[in-house]
């Protein structure tokens, strides 16, 4: 069973969606996954923010076409991808406690149901060391 460690720094819609697709691929391969949500990413995991992510990191001038395309192609939302992945394989989502505080989340209850726990930076690096694949998004 391969291990995947993901450092999820980004909170933009395009990168969250990409992370979601990668997690789905990992789920199809029955991988063990740990996601450490850092800085910008933490905003997306605050309870109630799932639908409030509407910024893209790249090709911002083409944002409307990009969003329209996702709709036309019937692409799942980033949240749905994460949910599906958690459903199919072992995916743990940890929010860096500092990142959480930056966006107003102090306790686990302030975050949505995808989140398993808060964490510190040491745990992210240890996980990266022990994984077969390490990604930073």
């Amino acid at each position: 069973m391969s291990k995947l460690c993901m450092g999820l720094f980004s909170g933009s819609l395009d990168k969250l969606t990409a992370a979601g697709v990668i997690l789905s691929g990992a789920a199809a391969d029955d991988m063990d996954v740990e996601v450490f949500v850092l800085l910008q990413g933490a905003r997306a995991f605050i309870k109630g923010n799932e639908d409030k992510i509407d910024n893209v990191a790249e090709a911002t001038h083409l944002k409307d076409e990009f969003m329209k395309s996702l709709e036309v192609l019937n692409v799942s939302t980033w949240y749905e991808f994460f949910e599906m992945a958690k459903d199919m394989t072992n995916v743990k989502i940890y929010i860096c406690s500092l990142a959480g505080k930056i966006w107003g989340g102090e306790k686990l209850e302030d975050f949505n149901d995808l989140v398993d726990d808060l964490c510190g930076i040491g745990e992210y690096l240890t996980s990266a060391e022990e994984s077969d694949i390490h990604l930073f998004i």
């Binding site: 697709v21 789905s24 789920a27 199809a28 192609l73 692409v75 199919m88």
Partner: peptide
């Protein structure tokens, strides 16, 4: 009806 990675899943 679904886009990648839908069919695989």
């Amino acid at each position: 009806g679904t886009a990648c990675p839908g069919p695989l899943l």
